[in-house]
Write a protein that binds this DNA or RNA. Structure first.
Lengths: 206, 206, 206, 206
DNA sequence: AATGAATGAGTGTTCATTCAT
DNA sequence: AATGAATGAACACTCATTCAT
């Protein structure tokens, strides 16, 4: 009756590493929610798209709202990391904004605000807050970048928070198929938009 | 035997400009669709909000898709007229854009693109086309204005269609409560956004 | 544009008289709830037993709790009327109690308390109150009868409310199949129980 | 190869009186079943209340019906022993009946008949029989006591089985909150009920 | 012109049960 | 001895839609 140092826990050990099924479900769900919105996505649909059963989804998530929350938080954290890496990288501000825009526009998603408005009826206060916080982290990142750029004289002075929001809003223009799909490549669209955002409408005096 | 009892005719049924009930239903439905999106609005809800029965709604509209289509077309036509009046009115381009932005931002609505994306799964090709056409009329109006302004040298040269879309996108920023609600009035927000849109980020050379 | 005195209401008139379908559903539901309890009865089951669809049940009742409440109230009101008629009728108290017991025991039902305990988790406060009130009307009726009988010296003095409850409890004995089903007829069982209730266990002094 | 891994053996699995986990599960389950009834108790709930996993419950019991059966049998055997001890103890019949009633009424449980009715749909014939037998042992005990008391002239002659059932039925009156909770203590209620049961309603001749 | 009645298909959710570890 | 993962069947409830009146 001595102590067993290894102290193995009883029962089946938690699936290797990061639980692949659960992450797969979250990824799929995130994609579908972004593509179709909260209401239109059925858990049955998510399950089938993952090749599992609806009950399996419920094994990992208590309800639709939680699945939505966790999925969205996952992609937000990824997007934040990606954006931060680009922003901390080399290149002029304009170049880096362009890179971010390209990444953002490549991801097929309804703009966030829309999706949240629709979903928020079914989410708890706490869930909304958590998502908003994650979203704000992204805005904060951009805001800081703009603030610094203003201080450096790299761009004209303005409300940095407003700039961040507007920048994101402009990026959603890519959804309009008439513009993007046609002759111009997605990259060209991104370039045009950043250009517009950069120079504004006012004519330059020579 | 020319007169038939009103039995499921396709298309917009006799909008003889008189039928008060029908118009009332369309107005109510439009408001609800804009507020909550396509899926979340139930015909029962529309009916109750109008003080009639669900069956009455079906008396005027063959199905939810048609009700949606007609309702949206109604508000689009109104918006078009309003925008045209402003744009043909007096003032500099910047001033008139500001006026339009104020009107747009005052209407409590999900941005169009979002609503359409959600709804389009349930609409026929023809219905989508009709709505897109009405929407394009609005974009066209703005596009023409921008094109003319470019020709007049009032703004810097750019793709006028892109300008139109981006302009609308920027206007949706108003939804972000953090920006609008706080210290700045809605009018101030509109002004800031137009300003940003106008001047761009690039620093002016003196 | 004169007044039309008949003033017929528009639309299909409410089905003749007392709406047969709705009553049929309530009767069936009441029977099933009494037989199997709240949880075990599915709305699908109720619907099928009525030869209608689940959705039809929902057309008349907002949810399971409401269906339960209305159904139970219906049978309670019938039982109250029936009991009152017997109690106000002719015969000695013992005879009338016997008659009530026979009627009560003929109706296949779980004793009320049991059913309510199970159901009450799913009912609103108001619904519970309404049922309790209807139930109390029955108890009140018996209580009054017992009180009067005590005053008349027809039975020994005791707490009338307790008598009423105990009387109802004793009637539920009939559920025990070993007793009722076997050799003794239901009537004989009722007679025995009332006899026991009447004379008690104590031996009579000659 | 005589020893098999514990793989779904029918009947009560090795209750070697030692396995603490198994007994803990049965106790918890019994309590929950009595408190909430068969359907409303989920195996997940039982497991959590025991601090184990659902799968652990299935390790000891093949299915819900078996868990129910074994748990109920356990408490019935305890109740039988307890009742026998009281009945074989000192005091007049009335006093001992009162003691049993107090013990019975103290245990928070739905009355047996109710629980069984709800559960029996999910139990096998054999399981029902086993429980009924255990229950009957209790009734038999009371029946024998009553029979002896009749023979001794301690109580008036009557069907002893009926007396046993009615006695148990009367004890369930304690559930009615209006009676028990108010001014009278639970003990007083028990006393009143036994008194009523003892003396009956008929007036005593002086 | 407008309505009451009825339905079918789908949605979110629960739960007993199985199986590999 | 005990567990994590996964599933199928059922359930309460909603909603767009139809039809006779």
């Amino acid at each position: 009756m001595t102590e067993q140092p290894p102290k193995r826990k009883p029962g089946r050990p938690k699936a290797d590493g990061k639980n692949q099924t659960m992450i797969q479900i979250m990824r799929t769900a995130a994609f579908l929610f972004m593509e179709h919105g909260f209401e239109k996505v059925s858990l049955e649909g998510v399950a089938q798209a993952c090749g599992v059963t609806k009950a399996s989804v419920y094994y990992y998530f208590n309800n639709k709202a939680q699945l939505f929350t966790e999925s969205v938080l996952l992609v937000l954290s990824v997007a934040l990391e990606q954006t931060r890496r680009i922003m901390e990288g080399p290149g002029s501000l304009q170049e880096r904004l362009l890179k971010v825009a390209e990444g953002h526009m490549a991801n097929a998603h309804v703009d966030f605000e829309t999706m949240m408005r629709e979903a928020s009826a079914g989410l708890s206060e706490e869930q909304i807050t958590r998502i908003r916080n994650a979203e704000n982290a992204l805005n904060q990142l951009l805001e800081d970048v703009f603030r610094q750029a203003i201080a450096d004289g790299e761009i004209a002075p303005a409300n940095p928070l407003l700039l961040a929001h507007a920048y994101i809003a402009v990026m959603t223009v890519r959804n309009r198929k008439e513009i993007v799909n046609d002759k111009e490549s997605l990259q060209q669209a991104a370039k045009d938009i950043i250009q517009l955002f950069w120079n504004g409408l006012a004519p330059r005096k020579p």
